[in-house]
Design a protein around this nucleic acid. Structure first.
Lengths: 168, 168
DNA sequence: GCTGAAAAGCATCGCCT
DNA sequence: AGGCGATGCTTTTCAGC
């Protein structure tokens, strides 16, 4: 691995300069900051700052803006994970399972792991009864061979985004 | 379990009416919507809508606003999970491990599971070399007995928030 | 690509219902 | 509680550097 391959941006990465990175870090931290304040923080005047933000949105670097809601306030006291093994690794079975659980609002994430047949899901539930019902629905699904639930006891860190390298 | 206990809000839930739920759903979907547009969508004029948003922020129902960034555009091509078992369930060991990994920017989530000694981590890495280095750092940490990595092959669903029950 | 000014739109306040 | 009207900012565009 030579110096160039270590530094080369991963092919679809659109040249982000230090100001772009600062903008991204600020918007990840506070998505409702005004453009004037954002411009002040990155050392630009408002118009070029807004152009950069628009460009980052159009390029897909910024995928959207979301309010972070308190799950407990909405009645979801429990977050848990489920390791699900399917009975088959046939693509049609994998896809059917993904389509099934993607339609459940309580399933927030569904990742295939280890190359097929196994999935890691993140789910929310109102209470333990709801959690048990969701686990039972998973276990009873046609494609499912086994389910192992990983209940979250406490959470030391839960950051949604990605680390943004800020200069300085 | 009677009808009241099923419907009772979980003690710290601050009475959210249908308009509040609509506001939360809209702001989770688009955190940069203007208050005027938000008010139009929920059928209110701007001032009472803004008062509700401020109240939801002050009550902590809305915890913040964040830009959703494309991890790959920032150079993080890989998301993976790690199941980490510690050598001890002593609280001091658990806390030390949590403090250690919380300080790593690549560790985005750290959840204790099954009541102690086991953790589920979500991490991001630039490439497989970076992933291997992170796994090695985990394995080599003083408190760690075993590490099982769960590499994400593909992701069928990845929604950050919680389901908001929208009336109608 | 940045600055500065100007027009349009928005947030926000006080008061009324 | 929600609505109306007024004020000050913010956003956004456009000329000019």
């Amino acid at each position: 691995m030579n110096r160039d391959s270590m530094r080369a941006p991963p092919r679809d990465e659109p040249e982000l300069d230090d100001v772009d990175l600062q903008i991204l870090a600020e918007l990840q931290r506070d998505g409702r900051i005004t453009n004037v304040e954002l411009a002040r923080r990155v050392g630009l005047s408002a118009p070029p700052c807004l152009r950069r933000v628009r460009r980052l949105e159009e390029e897909g670097v910024i995928r959207g803006y979301h309010a972070e809601l308190d799950a407990a306030a909405l009645g979801y006291e429990i977050t848990f994970f489920a390791l699900v093994g399917l009975e088959s690794q046939k693509e049609s079975v994998l896809t059917a399972f993904e389509a099934l659980v993607a339609a459940w609002p309580e399933v927030r994430e569904c990742h295939m792991i280890r190359g097929g047949g196994d999935f890691l899901l993140r789910l929310v539930a109102r209470d333990t009864a709801h959690e048990n019902a969701l686990t039972a629905r998973l276990t009873g699904a046609a494609q499912v061979a086994r389910v192992q639930t990983l209940q979250t006891i406490r959470t030391a860190k839960d950051e949604a985004g990605v680390p943004v390298p800020v200069p300085g």
